[in-house]
Amino acid sequence: MTLTTDTPGRTVPKRLLGLLGLVLLAAFAVLLSFALGAQDLHPADVWRALVSPDGTDATAVVRELRAPRTVLGVIVGLALGVAGALIQGHTRNPIADPGLLGVSAGASFAVVLAIGVFSVEAFGGYIWFAFAGALIASVLVFGVGAGSRDGPTPVTLALAGMAVSALLSSFTSSMLVTSPETLNVFRFWIIGSLSGREIETAWQVAPFVAAGLLLAAVNAPALNALSLGEDVARGLGQSVVAARVAGVAAIMLLTGAATAACGPIGFVGLFVPHLARLLTGPDHRWLLPFSGLLGVTAVLLADVAGRLVARPAEIQTGIVLAVAGAPFFIWLVRRVRLVQL
């Protein structure tokens, strides 16, 4: 007999179909991101500008302005979507977001240092500061989690993450309240936005995101075993510590890279995994790609919407995601019972 998994809509072919649908949706968002903005372009013009660039305005707009933010949107959306699913899986806490492990707070503090102490002014200059801050903070969090007597359990990880984040953001605030000049630069970074970044930024963080995605893929089966409880996972021959280390490393790389590139874009990593879980259920081998693709779509759509509402000015991606994504999330919470992990 052929044993196909489970509830209607969750058979392997249907899941593949769902995955295909999400790829198309993300592709559509990419197209919108190229076509819409202060100046709307026909898809044919976009295609021409990409394939055979000429000296027209359309080429300049597409290649100089929209290509970097679109590529960044794809990278960041993928990273945050997958990282969100990983962190919720590892902490078994449905309100965990990728910033929980101290990544956002660490990156923020490092950027404040960059602005306040090293007088770095361009967004491009913050990348390595932010990335280093994110890594140091999350290593610290994992160290505290692992150092506590129960080891890196969901609860110790989450609490350590909250605590380290709180500490770091108090350092950040103390720089901000004593130096208005730093606040003046920092308040634009902290919102999180795809705009004003060079294409180099995308290529700089891409390898880290790729490494993070690879680790996440390796981590998926282990996370499935872990979700049955640590004892069952051990019984199934899964090393709990190895799985946690791989998972935390993946979250660190993905979120750190995304934050370094675009500032903290928070909410995506929180609500996208819930949506993905509704579509495909609790199997992380499917949940991670679903979540990543939904992340791409959400980030790009938010960015496009931000360009359209206040034309010719724009609203930052992070704000749009909060203001548009949250009502959608609330609607979802009211309509269906979200799965408690």
Binding site: P94, I95, G266, I319
Partner: peptide, 20 residues
């Protein structure tokens, strides 16, 4: 659980407003 999730959502909207 629902209260916490919705509170997070509302908080996110307000934080967006504050940043703006």
């Amino acid at each position: 659980f629902r209260l916490v999730l919705i509170g997070l959502g509302i908080g996110e909207i307000l934080r967006g407003f504050i940043s703006w």
